[in-house]
Design a protein around this nucleic acid. Structure first.
Lengths: 191, 191
DNA sequence: AATAAGATATGATAAAGGTCATATTAAAAT
DNA sequence: ATTTTAATATGACCTTTATCATATCTTATT
């Protein structure tokens, strides 16, 4: 048998990883299969040994992104839920996030996802629910937290990052992110 | 001279109008010049008598949308600024809006705009500033209003509509819209 | 080293779509 | 009615791109 057992799996992961970065940066239509595979140092022909179609890949990428998100990271033991939530917010509402290091698909693909197939939309919905639930869980550990307020909060931070990405004025981006960070802190019991 | 003086202008408006609906529904790449012109009962050849390119049209559409937005409508005299702002929020955070009657490009094109040329992005930035300023103006007429809070507010409602459009669960959409409507009301002095 | 199974590369295909050159048509002015 | 000018339609071109069939290469196992 050729290639080590995990070889294909590794290639698949590499494709998913590259695809995640490319799709979040340029949207579904802004990425070609060729581009994607070249960014993996492969050629387009190999793609179809891993995914049945580009649309299929898109769903898989969004599903996969959940496991590689910051929310999936373990909270260090010496950090309280409250502190951790604050750090997550700091990262989410940061210039680095807007610039595309560890992009959140919820913000980066919000309007892109609307016209995709049901698989992609379901994966997106899942990720969205995951984010809301995570915030609720962290917040509930130290304060009374209304799930309805969390919906408003996540809409705000997702919206903020999505809008920030459209802007060229760095100062305006910072203002927007800071404004939302303050609001979020207030809503979550002063963090 | 053929055709009445305003004929071309009218056709141009028709194209802009159709393009606005199509682009907000399907994104830039989701619309073909052919589709667009057919929806105007014209053929693609005529397009280039009105716009130099599809990308050019996109900028023009976003610029044009400002003048046809609800914000551009005159506020009736028998309605206070406070009431009017409340009605604008009601409309913005409504199922009808999410379904695409009178779509707001800020929410419908948020991630689509990121990869477009500078003209489109500037037009978007303009519209965004217009929305923030409008909220500030209306709110200031009856309450003290922190511009930073307005940034958080518009991020929230734009985000809410963008996210709502990705969802299939109608009940979840309603919950999201209602949650944001409540929050917005609180932030704007109880409306 | 040889083999075989499977991963990757190559070349081809077909469809889609933006754009333009050219033809046609509509209607205002004479 | 004819003319003229600009708007619209038609046909073509060329590029891009997803996908697939087939060829080639890799490497674990023998």
């Amino acid at each position: 048998m050729p290639y080590s057992k995990q070889h294909k799996q590794q290639t698949r992961e590499k494709i998913l990883h590259s695809a995640f970065n490319l799709f979040t940066a340029k949207g579904f239509d802004g990425v070609t299969v060729n581009q994607l595979m070249q960014s993996c140092k492969l050629t387009r022909g190999a793609f179809y040994a891993h995914f049945t179609s580009k649309a299929d890949l898109y769903s898989e990428v969004i599903k996969h992104s959940a496991s590689s998100s910051k929310l999936a990271e373990l909270k260090p033991d010496d950090v309280t839920d409250k502190q951790w939530l604050g750090e997550l917010l700091d990262g989410y509402l940061s210039i680095e996030h807007v610039n595309g290091t560890t992009p959140c698909p919820l913000a980066f693909l919000a309007t892109d996802i609307v016209t995709r197939d049901i698989g992609a939309r379901l994966a997106y919905a899942n990720a969205y629910q995951g984010m809301n639930q995570a915030v609720i869980n962290f917040a509930n550990s130290y304060t009374e937290c209304d799930p309805r307020q969390v919906l408003a909060l996540t809409a705000m931070i997702i919206g903020a990052v999505a809008i920030a990405r459209t802007m060229d004025d760095q100062q305006a981006i910072i203002s927007l992110l800071n404004a939302c960070r303050s609001e979020a802190g207030l809503k979550l019991g002063g963090i």
